[in-house]
Design a protein around this nucleic acid. Structure first.
Lengths: 230, 230
DNA sequence: CGCGGCGTTGATCTCTGTCAATACTTGTGG
DNA sequence: CCACAAGTATTGACAGAGATCAACGCCGCG
């Protein structure tokens, strides 16, 4: 783990809020785990031994039914932590996790964290802040699925990815479209068509490259109750 | 607040886990708030001053867009706590809350709780457990909306309400069907039709009374990939 | 070069939303 | 006590969004 990695760790809501020495004592000299795309980190139902910080790459959380269908719950990127909450939930992961790109991760021991919390009460506040952050993310996702159409959801997704909140920009899709579709709760075919519908709004797609002519216009479309007509 | 109320408080994951005197010191002599159906508790975006324990009745959490559409995120009942996590999220509620029946609630001050956490580290673990529990609920909801049809969702909802996991039973719907529909991410009309489709599975509905002839059958239907055919 | 995974496009079907009409329940006031 | 209004639930007809099934193009890889 180099300085670059350390900076990423310190930028997370969880490790950013605590004193430097505490953060260091938790992370300790944990080796960085380097993983191929598609590596399974843990499975739903397993005892929750540790949680993770993403230094590089993308990770999906998903649930699978006995029948084999797989529902993507969220997708995290560099600088995000996940599964912290699972540590406290009867000790079992409620979801499975796998990398969707090659990735470098930090795995942090749950026991160590729990012990540190007892010693350092204000650390708990960081944990709570972090878990509240995830809660908010899920709430937003529920709102989107329940109230937006497929084209609106992908529009919102793009707006989130955009570097600025106005003007034009180029966006590189961070992972495969199949996964984006799952994350947004639709089929890949629908994603294709939804993107096609955004064309009149100045969206061009070529492979994983998306050009947006007017981010604000896109954002407005994602929230509007009435849609494109022509 | 009488002994009955106190028992409810102690049965929550949050207050059940902590020593009795700590729980007492947090709740203190807070008056019970008695509210009519439809009372607004707080609005999304407001500074999060306190969180709540439900002693009696039902409460919905929802998000509203500027356009006025309202998305129900979750519905809680007696014995549940809500908005604990908001206290730690930049101090703002990410959702609004309103009672959907007449209700009795306990409102607990956020500052007090935060101070107690500093003094009583293991209290933080209770908080985390409680917030993890809510997280899990949201994850399950996302999974349901994304992967189940309307009849399956209402089936799952009924199974959750059923007193036993097998055999037959009578269920009283806890709040209005309009709200159930919102909670499940569908329109009231669709809820009516979805319930009608469950008839071949031994579901009879009369007003708010639902009779289930075989809970296990219903549960199986809620998870099945293939559906009723005839 | 051929194969397999991913993405797009087309045709069709199914589910759910929309719009509208009709009970039924509840509460209000004459 | 009844008429009436408002809110809630059900039902029907219809339209539209998205799923499904299938075919095809594209690219990377052995």
């Amino acid at each position: 783990m180099d300085n670059r990695d350390w900076a990423i760790v310190r930028a997370t809501p969880l490790f950013g809020a605590m004193p430097q020495d505490v953060a260091l004592s938790i992370i300790g000299t944990k080796p960085v785990r380097v993983l191929d795309k598609g590596s399974l980190l843990f499975q739903q139902g397993e005892p929750a031994a540790s949680f993770f910080v993403i230094l590089e790459g993308w990770v999906k959380l998903f649930r699978s039914t006995p029948e084999g269908t797989e529902t993507v719950v969220s997708v995290f990127r560099r600088g995000e932590t996940f599964a912290e909450a699972a540590i406290f939930l009867g000790g079992r992961y409620p979801v499975s996790a796998a990398t969707v790109t090659s990735a470098r991760l930090l795995a942090i021991d749950g026991d160590v964290l729990r012990r540190r919390i007892i010693e350092q009460p204000q650390l708990a506040l960081s944990m709570l802040a972090s878990s509240s952050y995830h809660l908010k993310g899920l709430v937003e996702q529920i709102e989107q699925i329940k109230s937006l159409t497929a084209p609106q959801r992908i529009a919102a997704f793009l707006v989130n990815l955009a570097p600025a909140s106005e003007g034009s920009c180029l966006i590189e899709l961070p992972y495969e479209k199949t996964l984006i579709a799952q994350r947004l709760g639709m089929k890949p075919e629908s994603l294709s068509r939804a993107l096609a519908k955004l064309r009149p709004l100045g969206i061009r797609v070529d492979r994983e490259n998306v050009s947006v002519s007017d981010v604000r216009l896109l954002a407005r479309f994602a929230e509007a109750t009435d849609q494109i007509d022509e």
